[in-house]
């Protein structure tokens, strides 16, 4: 069976600073992420993980190289067009959850659907179904502030899944959680990725999560080092 490529990066570089004195956060990154796989991006702080995730999420434009999302080359697209690509194809999960504190749990999910043009009743129905998937249907009317960290992250997952995007990008989703909640969240993401044939990219430096990865890519000083198989320890590299 042919693997469907959800995200394709070719020689992506990202430099910051004035010309002539630029610092590279990412150098010649080439990577494919296929649907149905959970890819983990691991590496120390400042290695370029978040930069890579932002580029994959069409939030940050690369300095050079090409990027395709869901088969569409997005190089040279306007901000407006990039917003549409994000809306149609990508769901985000953030380390700090980034929920809407003034809205209740149901409304937090409904926002993602409202953006995609769902009617209010359709959005309510779909949001409830998604909350049931993540086990939060009994919390629909409460505000996020009253929930535990694990529940908040499950809500963030529900919001990311709403609208059935082909790609889920997660930035340190377990960093603020204890081990039990962290395991539950990763388990949930893994099963939802498989069930929905989604590509899930998780930026993490939490070693507890590696068991959930289909593939691990290590990043250091802006360069990618694909690992041979799930759970394998990153090889020693020259400093």
């Amino acid at each position: 069976m042919t693997e469907k490529i959800a995200i394709e990066l070719r020689d992506i570089s990202k430099a910051y600073g004035p010309e002539g004195n630029q610092e590279y956060a990412l150098r010649n990154a080439t990577l494919n992420v296929v649907q149905g796989e959970v890819l983990m991006l691991m590496g120390p702080s400042g290695s370029g993980k978040t930069t890579l995730l932002s580029i994959m999420g069409c939030i940050l434009k690369p300095t050079s190289g090409s990027l395709s999302v869901a088969g569409r080359d997005i190089s040279g697209l306007s901000q407006q067009a990039l917003s549409k690509i994000r809306l149609d194809n990508i769901g985000y999960i953030f380390q700090e959850y980034n929920l809407f504190p003034t809205l209740n749990v149901l409304e937090n999910v409904m926002v993602a659907l409202d953006l995609r043009g769902y009617s209010r009743s359709q959005a309510r129905e779909t949001a409830m179904a998604t909350l049931t998937d993540v086990g939060l249907d009994d919390k629909a009317a409460v505000k996020p502030a009253t929930m535990s960290g694990g529940q908040k992250q499950r809500l963030a997952i529900a919001r990311a899944l709403a609208g059935s995007p082909k790609v889920i990008l997660a930035d340190e989703p377990t960093a603020a959680l204890d081990s039990v909640n962290g395991q539950q969240v990763m388990d949930l993401m893994h099963s939802l990725a498989k069930r929905g044939d989604r590509a899930v990219v998780v930026v993490t430096h939490d070693p507890r999560t590696v068991d959930f990865a289909d593939r691990i890519v290590t990043i250091e000083d802006g360069q990618l080092y694909p690992q041979p198989h799930n759970g394998a320890k990153a090889p020693e590299r020259k400093s």
Binding site: Q80, S83, I85, R86, Y92, N98, F100, T102, V111, A112
Partner: peptide
């Protein structure tokens, strides 16, 4: 006060008009 929420909406793909 709500700037991070607006940034989240933008990241999610909300058009400026929204």
């Amino acid at each position: 006060d709500h700037i991070s929420e607006f940034a989240t909406l933008k990241a999610m793909g909300a058009p400026n008009s929204y």
